[in-house]
Structures are given as structure tokens and as C-alpha cells.
Amino acid sequence: MIEIKSVVKQYGRKRVLDNVSLNIEKGKITSFIGPNGAGKSTLLSIISRLIGKDGGEVYLEGQLVDRIDYNDFARRLSILRQTNHINVRLTVRELVSFGRFPYSEGKLKAEDLEHIEKALEYTQLQDEQHKYLDELSGGQRQRAFIAMVIAQDTDYILLDEPLNNLDVKHSVEIMKILRRLVRELGKTVVIVMHDINFASCYSDHIVAFNKGQIVKEGEVEEIIRKEVLEDVYDTNFVVQDIMNRRICFYY
């Protein structure tokens, strides 16, 4: 479990996160939704220690994250940010191998190779593994980064808008991979999402943010409701059940 206790983050005088407290349960997909600038990505970055915080604590399975050694932390929690521009020219396999760095420090052992193979298989990138990243399509590249995170083999996986710039087919592929990770390997996945319907269809738990605070959190049925969403996004919503899923219209 990840426990977040009254976390504060401010840039200058502007509070991006205002006393946010939240528990993220193990073995589930939790989605963060909310309008732009609500603080979702900031919270994700704070949990994963990419940026510092101005107040509050974050615990990973009861341990204060700031006390966990860097390498140890990287074996337990991984993060994938939305902008993954890499200046080095790497093949898919080389990128995925980097996921083993926390274990191997660069010298791959048999066990590491096994993990790499498995990650490639999970993301169906075996055929592309020797291609360079800049030769891939957007969807394949995103899968390659997810494969790296899978190879990292952490219990917790945090993703910041993994569906950004992807078409429908590739978005569905990625969400299915994430679902499998939770179901088969018992991973805990936290995603920042822009598409509410994807959040609705694939999450176990949804946290709605607005203006640096959590407006409401709960199961899909509790959050994907007209009143809640209209409150969060300040737009008109129509919510309907279609084929046992909650779908919203907001156009």
C-alpha cells in the first residue's frame, strides 16, 4: 500500500497540491482523473521521488519513501512519465535491458535476460526488439517503455498519461497489458488518465482531482456519475451504462 499523508507542493505562491491524503491499495489499478493542472501528475512525481515536496509524507508499505535507498526503491516502484524523449539512439532490447539496471548495475545475468524476454513477450515486441526506437510507431515506442518498466519488475508501477498521443487500437492494447499485469502478476498500477471512459472501463479505483485537492475517490460506480464529474470538470455530462460499463458523454 502507498499512503500519502497531507502532501503539499507549491511553486512560488501557487499551491499545486494542497494537503492531499490518499491510500493506494495493492493489487489494483488506480486512476487519477481531473482537469489540467489539478495536480495529478505532480502527485505521481512526488510519490516516485522525481520532485521534492514542501510538506507531508509518503509511505511505501509502511516505510517513509525518503528513507528508502535509491536502488532499493527502484526495485519496488517504477514510474513512466509522459514525455520520453531520449537523446541516445537505442534499440528496443537495449531500452528494455535498462529496466534491469537496479538489479544488475549494467552486467546482465541469466535471470535478467529471462526478465527481459518476458517483458518483450508481454508487450509483443519480440519481432521489433532489434529495431531502433526512432524507427518505431508511437504505439510501439510506448509499449517499449512499458516493457522496460515490466522488466524492472517492481510491485508498484506508476504511469503518467500512458495513452497520450495514441490511437484507439494502441490505447486498448496498452490498457490490456496493464490489466494483465495486475491480474497475472499481482502488480499495483497507478495511472494518470485524461480519457474518462478508459478510466471507467479499466480501473478498480478512481481518484478525482481538482485544484490541488482530491474531490472524491472510490469505485468506478461512485465516481463515474453525472454530479461528481460535473463538479470535477465543470462541464455538462451524461453518464449511461452500456454493455455493463459506465460511459460518459460530454460533447
Binding site: S48, R49, L50, Y70, N71, D72, F73, A74, R75, S78, I79, L80, R81, N84, H85, I86, N87, V88, F98, G99, F101, P102, E105, G106, K107, Q152
Partner: peptide, 20 residues
């Protein structure tokens, strides 16, 4: 020296892979 390979992936990736 091996850490440098990871550093070349940029700050966020490096931190994610357990580099201080």
C-alpha cells in the same frame, strides 16, 4: 561508469532506475 549509461536516459529515467 556504468551509471553514466543510465544518466544518458535523462533525469527522470535515471531516478526511476534507482540512480541518485
Amino acid at each position: 561508469l556504468r551509471t553514466l549509461d543510465v544518466l544518458s536516459l535523462g533525469r527522470e529515467n535515471a531516478i526511476n532506475l534507482g540512480v541518485n
